[in-house]
Design a protein around this nucleic acid. Sequence first.
DNA 1: ACCCAGGAAATTC
DNA 2: GAATTTCATGGG
Length: 279
Amino acid sequence: MNYRVFENYTEVFGCSDFNLRDTLLCGQCFRFSENPDGSFKGVAFGRELVLAQKSDSIVFYCDEKDFSDIWVNYFDLGQDYGEIKAELSALHPVLKEAARFAPGIRILRQEPFEALISFIISQNNNIKRISGIVERLCSLCGDQIKEGVFAFPRVDALAKLSSEDLAPIRAGFRAKYIVDAAQKVKSGELNLKSLESLEYDEAKKQLMKIKGVGPKVADCVLLYGLHRTEGFPMDVWMKRAMEKLFTGVSPSDFGKYAGIAQQYIFHYARLHPELFKEE
DNA sequence: ACCCAGGAAATTC
DNA sequence: GAATTTCATGGG
């Protein structure tokens, strides 16, 4: 994947494994949306970004510094997804089909704290409403980047608030979980940075010390916030998909890229609900 | 009105 | 311990 730097934008070529809509709107992140003109905008790492898919390229409307310092990493541009897909596709015919259905999905490298809070909010919830709650949370206590645009809240800012303070974001019963997470991260009882060097199961156990973080949310934080691709979040869609489409297959059969397989399957299942209608 | 949504805690059996 | 109920909120 090569790119060319211009004055007000950077253009990335060779995007056969990079689709913006599938990557940004597949439910792994909650702060990007599609503009009326088909471009996308969102916020990550305290920066706003507008970007657009062209016929043979993707245009990032940002300066060269943000592109190389933030977005190359965020979009995991150093990874060859063609290679990963080939490896995964050899494992199972339905997985091959799912990867072909959305060949441009990539696993974003989100900030761990944002992933933690976002996926706490995700429990027993739907993607549209999750996005709304996250957006209101950012407006409530995130740093303002510009008029009407807010960064995801810093740990300190969020840790100052009570669940009553969070009422305006309408997170429901999850508000107290958000507060607990922010406070445990602030106090150091949970050290997100240190999770990098831990074995998967130990890191997962650390995350589950937080109220409202069970096995599935912990897997999501590890996959989307710490890029631990051996994780395999099992939500309602994945349970259905594994039962009907991958009978007898265990997540561990997908190996070190199980999490990426999971993302192809999740997206495929969610956009083919008819596959799961009763008999 | 009912059911479901990228689940987990609380309660009951 | 395993199975069931409850938890806020909003959309279909």
